[in-house]
């Protein structure tokens, strides 16, 4: 354990807890509490390896991501890592143009996005396989660089870019299906009349 009592594990961990849970909620969905608990136990055991408390956020982030990946591995969820199809998915932007779900709106794309609550966004994220969800969260929600995420996940940067590309396609596709299944578009169409 480090000698600085002001920097005891308990104090540092309590400071990190809100954003750790927030990150876990996005990478592990409704298993967030299990992942945070595992993370705290692992971090406690390894606390002697944290030499600089300023590095605590990055240190906890790495441990939490490892915990989430281990949990997904144990669940043995089948992961589709087949090469990207040469034919890209239709983008959500173009799909909204083609389907025109809100014919009375002049700001249909923005209206579509704003129909999603934070809970809806998490629910869409939950639909993605972890291999795509984790890079998406780290890069586009946490603001990490693809180079840092590659180091964190122990894979080449090109692999991260490939997962991100496919993850975004899947996220956009799931957004459309979620909006349809949960009547978000019907609610919007009713509100605009």
């Amino acid at each position: 354990m480090p000698h600085q009592t002001d920097h005891s594990f308990s104090v540092i961990a309590r400071q990190q807890l809100p954003w750790l849970y927030s990150l876990a909620r996005r990478v592990a969905g409704n298993r967030a509490e299990d992942v945070v608990q595992d993370c705290l136990i692992r971090a406690y055991k390894a606390y002697g390896s944290l030499e600089d408390v300023q590095a605590a956020p990055a240190w906890f982030r790495q441990i939490l991501i490892n915990c989430a990946r281990d949990m997904h591995r144990k669940e043995k969820r089948r992961v589709d890592e087949s090469p990207l199809d040469d034919t890209p998915e239709q983008t959500l932007y173009r799909r909204i143009v083609d389907e025109d779900p809100l014919p009375y709106s002049e700001t249909v794309h923005i209206d579509f996005l704003h129909s999603f609550s934070e809970e809806d966004v998490w629910n869409v994220l939950d639909q993605l396989q972890p291999i795509y969800r984790i890079p998406l969260v780290l890069v586009h929600m946490e603001g990490q660089s693809t180079a840092d995420v590659a180091r964190m996940l122990g894979v080449p940067r090109n692999t991260v870019l490939s997962w991100l590309h496919r993850g975004r396609e899947k996220f956009e596709k799931e957004m459309w299906e979620y909006a349809d299944e949960n009547d978000l578009l019907r609610d919007l169409a009713g509100a605009e009349r």
Binding site: R26, F116, V121, L136, E142
Partner: peptide
């Protein structure tokens, strides 16, 4: 939209 949903 994704960033706004970043904090749980």
């Amino acid at each position: 939209v994704m960033k706004d949903a970043a904090r749980a």
